[in-house]
Amino acid sequence: MRTIDLAKTALRDLNQDLHRQSAGTNEARWEVINPMGSHAVAVGVDAPITIDIRGSVGYYCAGMNKQAIVTVHGSAGPGVAENMMSGEVRITGDASQYAGATGRGGLLVIEGNAASRCGVSMKGIDIVVKGSIGHMSAFMAQSGHLVVLGDAGDALGDSIYEAKLYVRGTVKSLGADCIEKDMRAEHHDELAGLLAKAGISGVQTSEFKRYGSSRKLYTFNIDNADAY
C-alpha cells in the first residue's frame, strides 16, 4: 500500500501519481494522511484502485472519479464527487453543499448529513445519504437515484426530470413539478438494491416514500420545443 502524507507531499504530486495509475496497476491500495481540508484531493482518478483519505477534505474531493473506490474518513467540503463517472465515493462524516452534483454514474455514500443542493443536476449517479439533506437538493436532477434515510430540506427535486428520489424522513417542501409517487414492487426492489449496495441494513424499504417529476413543467410540453 502507498501512503502519501499531505503534510510532506504537494497535492499536485499526489494527484499526478494517482493519474498515472491504470487498469493493470500493481499499486491498487492508497492511503492519504493529513489532508487538512485540502481542496481537489484525488480528483480525476481513472483506475480500479482504492484510496483511503484519513481526515477531512475541502472542495471537490474525488471529482470526476472513474472506477476508483475513494473513502474519506472525515467530512468533505463543497462539491464532493462532482461529476463522478463510475466507482464509489464514501464520506464517513458530513458533506457540504452540492455533493455529487452533475454525477453521471457510480455510487456516492454520505454516512452523515449532506448540506444544500445535494445531487443538483445529477445525470445517472446513485447517492445514498444516511443523515439528512439540505434545501434545493436534486434540483433539475435528470437521472439516477437519491436515497435519504433522514429528512430533506426545502424545494426537494425542483424542476426534476427522470431521477428517482427516496426519502425516509420528512420533506420540508417539494420544489416545482416534484410530487410524491407510489412505491410499487419494482421500486421496493430497486431501493433494496441501492441500500444493499451502500452497505446499509436495518431499514425497511416500506419506511420510504418515492418522489419524482409530474412532468408538467413547460419543458415537458412539446409546443415549447422551439424555445430552445
Partner: peptide, 25 residues
C-alpha cells in the same frame, strides 16, 4: 440560500468559524 461557505467548530475551549475547514485545522 447559503451559497457562501461556512464551517464551525466547537469544543469546551472555543467556538471557531472558517470559510473553509482548512482555516480550522
Amino acid at each position: 440560500i447559503a451559497c457562501k461557505p461556512a464551517v464551525m467548530a466547537e469544543t469546551d475551549q472555543y467556538v471557531a468559524f472558517g470559510s473553509e475547514y482548512r482555516a480550522l485545522v
